[in-house]
């Protein structure tokens, strides 16, 4: 994957902000914000799969990996074997 983690996070926060109709930061836990309807989790899985050309398997379904844009970024880069293994920290972008 050629995408930098910061770009990935930006892409995901853009999707989440549009989907949830409010600005969502990289570390906002949108599930606990109570902003998602009953089909959103599936839509998010599909979005991640389509956007980053990967398949979310049941083994990946650790919901903590999907709680924030930054965690999704880590998941995406782990899953796609990204070159940059450095964990992201708040304020990276």
């Amino acid at each position: 994957m050629s995408r930098e983690p910061a770009e990935t996070t930006e892409e995901i926060t853009r999707f989440l902000s549009a989907a949830l109709r409010r600005a969502v930061g990289p570390d906002d836990d949108y599930f606990t914000l109570g902003l998602v309807d009953s089909l959103f989790a599936l839509e998010l899985v599909t979005y991640v799969e389509v956007t980053f050309s990967l398949t979310v398997e049941v083994e990946d379904l650790d919901l903590d990996s999907f709680r924030t844009a930054r965690r999704i970024t880590e998941f995406v880069h782990r899953k796609t074997g990204a070159d940059d293994p450095t964990p992201l920290h708040a304020g990276d972008n």
């Binding site: 009953s38 089909l39 989790a41 599936l42 379904l61 919901l63």
Partner: peptide, 17 residues
Amino acid sequence: IAPPGAGLSHVAATALD
């Protein structure tokens, strides 16, 4: 089927869809 926490949002939601 699937880890706890995913029962409705993923498994049942897929079935219902």
